[in-house]
Design a protein around this nucleic acid. Sequence first.
DNA 1: AGCGTTACCGACAAAAATGTCAATAACAAA
DNA 2: TTTGTTATTGACATTTTTGTCGGTAACGCT
Lengths: 200, 200
Amino acid sequence: MSITKNNTPRIRRSPEESRANILSAAESLLVQQGPQSLRLADVAKAAGVANATVLHHFGSIDAVQQALMERMIADLVDSIMAIEIPADAPAAARADGLKTLFDAFETRGAARLAAWLELTDETSRLTVVRQAVQDVAQKKISSAGVPSDSAEDLILLSVTLAVGVGLFGPSLGKLIGKPEGRARELTLQMLLGHLERLAG
Amino acid sequence: MSITKNNTPRIRRSPEESRANILSAAESLLVQQGPQSLRLADVAKAAGVANATVLHHFGSIDAVQQALMERMIADLVDSIMAIEIPADAPAAARADGLKTLFDAFETRGAARLAAWLELTDETSRLTVVRQAVQDVAQKKISSAGVPSDSAEDLILLSVTLAVGVGLFGPSLGKLIGKPEGRARELTLQMLLGHLERLAG
DNA sequence: AGCGTTACCGACAAAAATGTCAATAACAAA
DNA sequence: TTTGTTATTGACATTTTTGTCGGTAACGCT
């Protein structure tokens, strides 16, 4: 009677799988409940493992958060990199590209990630962001085929609006009693008109 | 030698003053270091009082955060309420009004407050926001003198952009290597053009 | 001055969150 | 099958954060 045995067999994953499993759990926690729910016990529970397992793979809860940021940023960069908006493209193509950009931020919590980063002081974490932004900016600007200065402006404008709308659009719309994607719709409409006027 | 005396005289405030002092300290903590620094010890230290004093006035650290939210929201509502943009106003007046709106969110951390609210799950806290938004929307829409449906759209658009730019504009601009207010400048320019076209 | 109220504080207690460790068990390789 | 490696875990230890309590002192009032 002195020893308690656990009947359910352990799941033994490869280190990579295990890390991915934990980060995925943490990501959905972040998106659904916010950064303050990224506690060791919560992450472990969501991942279906013991607290000690999380620490075994990451060393600390801070390292989990750091790794999560890096993974989400990498995903976001991939999404953005996949967007191609040649300067001479027809308006419809530009519209599609911008929609994709806005989607990248609104869905899967990239905007929430950005807000988390923004509210989080730690400058150490920002180096990852800085690198990612520069990667994207460089590629996007060089491939845009427009004077780099105004291209930078356009990217700054588009990304700022995309992340802002992605974070606040849904809630504000709901608060005012508007349909789900109304803020994004209005913003895209305005932004496209603006771009068209600049091009024409 | 058994009793340690404290030479520095106590500051005795009225309950209202004391609460205001603590909330002000908490507010600057929120703005400068983010929500996760709103810990009991940090708030108390910033306010220059003992931990127990904070609890004496608010009961719990959660109540401090709740009160802070309510105070900041009330301030923000006041700022917005003070903005008047008659439909038949000249373009310059509209530009001023929008600038004030953007300022209200960017300065003094209203955008950060909004992000905090957005990332914070607790639905109980959202009732305050809901009420504030409805107050503002009702007044603004009724006084706008335009068809209420498109007026709502304009408010949704303006506020979403204002808070998004207020939160992310500075950092993104800095990351891309643009001057401080560039994102806001670009956004305002576009938004004003958009409004003008709608009016004309 | 004397007194009552209560804002204030230090010391302590409680709770919550993070991290450590030794033992266990899954799996691959010999 | 046996053995070595290590992912996994429960129990425990440590740290951090929140909250309690009795006494102290500032201030208004008589």
